[in-house]
Amino acid sequence: MSTTTADTVFERPAQRSWLPTVAIWVVLLTVPLWLPWIGGYTALAGRVLVLGLAAMALNFLLGFTGVMSFGHAAYFGLGCYGTGLTLKYLSDSTPLAMLVGILLGGIAGTVFGALIVRRRGVYFAMVTIAFGQICYYVAYRWNSLTGGDDGLRGFQRQPLHIGNWIIDIQNNPVLFYYFIAAVFAVCIGLMAFLLRSPFGRTLLAIRENERRARFLGIPVERHIWLSFSISCFFTAAAGSLYALLNNFADPMTLHFTLSGEIVIMAVMGGMRAFWGPLVGAAVFVVLQDYISSMTVNWMSFIGLLFVLVVLFFPRGLLGFVRAYSEK
């Protein structure tokens, strides 16, 4: 893996780097205009953005720090439940509910990260999976609070009040889509900023050669812990949006199956490309939506997708495109 050098993030020529960003934003912002024409629906686009944010947040850790978490569904699901529970029991303010969800998932990740930061490789992955399953079982068992297996129902996203303005994201799906896009923009903007900062470059150094980074006096554990926590906060933000999108919190959002799906989105799109996970999420969500409406044996097809990606597209779609365009 260390054969690819750090060219992906900061050594590409500056005059080219804005082009994909502009293209992606043009596509994202015009989605409500053209999606119905090709048979999609706006909630599907919302799902792509939400899971894309989760995959990009995971990739902050996986692709740019080189640490493999297989339990990110936990933080996604905690964000989801935190938001849902706040809206149901505490307050009818959407921003407050999101804040609670993000803090719940992010702080859980930060505390847990401190426990496991010395582990590496598959062992790190295994411990993160096991922790994720704790959250799943709590949601599954704590019937009176979380609704158990049926999931948490009985809450709705509320319109936003900004001064005298009311933005009705509750009933207008297109407005809500743009709300998701706005949160998405803030989150990935922050991640891009962090990756370009000295802190982000230190993470890349750790990914490329942990031992050398340690010799340089970089506190590796602290950086991995920070990276893990940041990744968890953004994943929780995605989960929080997911609760608002569905008006429902599903225990399956905490299950390790979703963790695996988030990882495959990142890998399928391209772990070393900043936008890769979003592309992967788009492909995965649309395929899953399509296949599961076509056949009951959709699990085989999704499984096959995993196998094919791993064997034939290990560098992901964007990695493939880049390798092709550089020939």
């Binding site: 996986l62 493999m68 297989f70 598959v122 992955a125 695996g260 990882v263 495959i264 890998v267 772990m271 699990m299 085989s300 999704i302 499984g303 096959l304 997708l305 995993f306 196998v307 990606v309 791993v310 064997l311 290990p314």
Partner: peptide, 13 residues
């Protein structure tokens, strides 16, 4: 990460 994803997919299949 690749072998993890592979066995994950195999489990589905």
């Amino acid at each position: 990460v690749y072998s993890l994803l592979l066995t994950f997919g195999l489990a589905f299949i």
